[in-house]
Write a protein that binds this DNA or RNA. Sequence first.
DNA 1: CTGATTGCAAAGTCTTTGCATACGA
DNA 2: TCGTATGCAAAGACTTTGCAATCAG
Lengths: 140, 140
Amino acid sequence: MAWSEHAFEQLTAAGHRRGGAREAVVELLGGQSCALSALEIEDALRGGRRVGRASVYRVLDELVALDLISRVDVGDGVARYEPQRSHHHHHLVCDGCGRLTPFQDDALEQAIRRLADRVAFAVSDHDVTLHGSCEHCSTG
Amino acid sequence: MAWSEHAFEQLTAAGHRRGGAREAVVELLGGQSCALSALEIEDALRGGRRVGRASVYRVLDELVALDLISRVDVGDGVARYEPQRSHHHHHLVCDGCGRLTPFQDDALEQAIRRLADRVAFAVSDHDVTLHGSCEHCSTG
DNA sequence: CTGATTGCAAAGTCTTTGCATACGA
DNA sequence: TCGTATGCAAAGACTTTGCAATCAG
């Protein structure tokens, strides 16, 4: 099942109606492969159904609360959000141009899983961010 | 050698003078074991040599540029900074109370080192954040 | 002496809140 | 119909910038 379908179900189950802003944001996120900031979402929706900034933030909050998206913070002071899927990824951040590149690594996930079992802490989620220079910025 | 000594040397080498604000911030950071936000630093310095908010941010910028501290972003919208030491740590963040707990894990570091060698990207730094509930917040 | 450094206050971003209107069920 | 959802504008939180006074070398 597509992520956005699942999201709508969960939203309904949580007692939320399917208003225009909610629908637009969920559908946009469902079509993304990497993280978007609230402002990027607002911009992306400028063409279609125009959604107010406050609504974008409100919808994102609901989705985070229902664990349907996760918030990613790569250190540039902007919060980004992406659908929570089974095989999740992490991010390479180019400190030169700011671009995000997703990656997956099973060894890393395993190390984190083991670590999570060992700490006195109920771990529910994790983030890994690698900083550096992308090919383009290293050369230039 | 203590981190703060090293930091002062690097700052001097980079052509910076040893002004009051710079000195106060570096010494405070040198005595910390975990990350502090700019506002926490300003507060901590309220007792001794009072340092302006802008100066705190400016000093932090310089230290980040010289790679003497690293910026940590755990997803609450506040930037935190901590001395860059040889055996660095990462953070557990309690989403309930917001408290940070440092941890170290060699298997994790190794997985990241291997990954860094594999990607088309010059990796210079990395961050790992585990989210969840601390013992206190899980019970309450 | 001379330019770097500092603090204050103002300006900027990103995010949240208040409130009246519009809309979904 | 009734309460949720929405958009706008105002308020907030954190960070950066402009500028005159101060300080280090």
